[in-house]
Design a protein around this nucleic acid. Structure first.
Lengths: 208, 208
DNA sequence: GGAAGTTAATCAATCGTTTGATTAATTTTG
DNA sequence: CAAAATTAATCAAACGATTGATTAACTTCC
């Protein structure tokens, strides 16, 4: 039997993330977090100072593991389209492997309050956005891509993926389908990648 | 001067919607709603029974004014592409004219709790989705559209618009820009429509 | 005068946080 | 090495503030 001796700090983070995802930040009480994690309530403030401290810590850890996947792609000696397609593949995979977190991030982003978090998320994303922008812009400048509204294209790619995460039932017409089921997730991942790669290829490279 | 004699009931609904949009349902207190609307706290329960009653009422009213804009378009004797482009125009306009509500709707949709609301929103959207699905499918069947992943295309259209509402700063590189400013809103509306119409035209009708 | 509208005051419950005490683990000291 | 001192981790209990809701008295208006 695996030892029960995991540190409470991590248990609190795990429980909090799960609860924040399910019921939102305001909708989750410190007592729930304590109960779910098996830690005493005071431990939350002992480790993180406050409830918001827990939230910030979750965000920071996630965002830390978020960066620098794109940089490698961008430095490869491949065509702009291939770069973009790798980015799409990477994005779909990462986001659909962390649907709960991305729902939460999205939710908090849509709130006017907690501006520090808003800025933090925004900064983390805008860096990635710049890289994608660079890839597409390079493609346009070297003549392999059509002249398009670059920011809108990026919005389309990201919006499509987010849309799948938040309303998977829309995509999968069948109702008895679960994003947590690895089988179903694989299916929808492949569909999303195929669609977005096809869409961008046609839209960006069709001569007209 | 416009008379101050507006009924409190509506004032409560207006204030609540604004606050729910800004700070979320859980993040908004009944006292805030009372203060913002100029009504006494007890009026909330007098008119709507409870805080949740206010929320449900807002959603019901909005969803009621949500339906059957698309039906007319679908019955017009125009090409599938023209239909789709009118749908896009209608969608962009409605959503960007009600950004606050759509943020709120989106947020509630991403929460596990309040399943009745989830189903209600889902049903309201799925009807419109069916109409769009029909338009695209018809276009495919009569040979004017390429064979594509229809649900994914719809997800792309809706996701793109939602993405603009939630992260307008992503699209508009300039920072001092406000979706509430009618001037800025017009600009982004036009850009969104132009992008989506161009994208769908190229993707759906390019021979390949 | 009576129904509808409105108010301030109050309710129990829950919120996030803090407290003081206790145990477990680690370091210092003789 | 072992006793003493120190630190880290954990706990139950309680804090004041705020929550959504309700009461009962008071206006307003037909």
């Amino acid at each position: 039997m695996k030892t029960e001796k995991v540190d409470k700090r991590q248990a609190i983070l795990d429980a909090a993330e799960k609860l924040f995802c399910e019921t939102g930040y305001e909708g989750t009480s410190t007592r729930q977090i304590a109960k779910e994690s098996g830690a005493n309530m005071a431990m939350i403030n002992y480790y993180f100072g406050s409830k918001e401290g827990v939230f910030v810590e979750i965000m920071n850890e996630r965002i830390a593991g978020f960066t620098s996947q794109l940089k490698i792609i961008n430095e490869d000696k491949i065509s702009a389209l291939e770069k973009l397609h790798r980015v799409i593949e990477g994005y779909v995979n990462r986001i659909l492997d962390n649907t709960a977190f991305h729902k939460m991030m999205h939710r908090e982003l849509s709130l006017t309050q907690r501006p520090e978090m808003y800025d933090k998320i925004k900064d983390a994303m805008s860096h990635n956005m710049q890289i994608i922008d660079r890839i597409i812009t390079d493609g346009i400048e070297d003549g392999s891509f059509n002249k398009v509204d670059v920011r809108m294209v990026i919005g389309t790619i990201m919006g499509t993926i987010t849309n799948i995460v938040i309303s998977p039932h829309k995509v999968m017409s069948c109702s008895n389908f679960d994003l947590n089921n690895p089988k179903d997730k694989k299916i929808i991942k492949d569909r999303a990648v195929a669609h977005l790669q096809d869409l961008t290829k046609v839209y960006l490279t069709t001569k007209r």
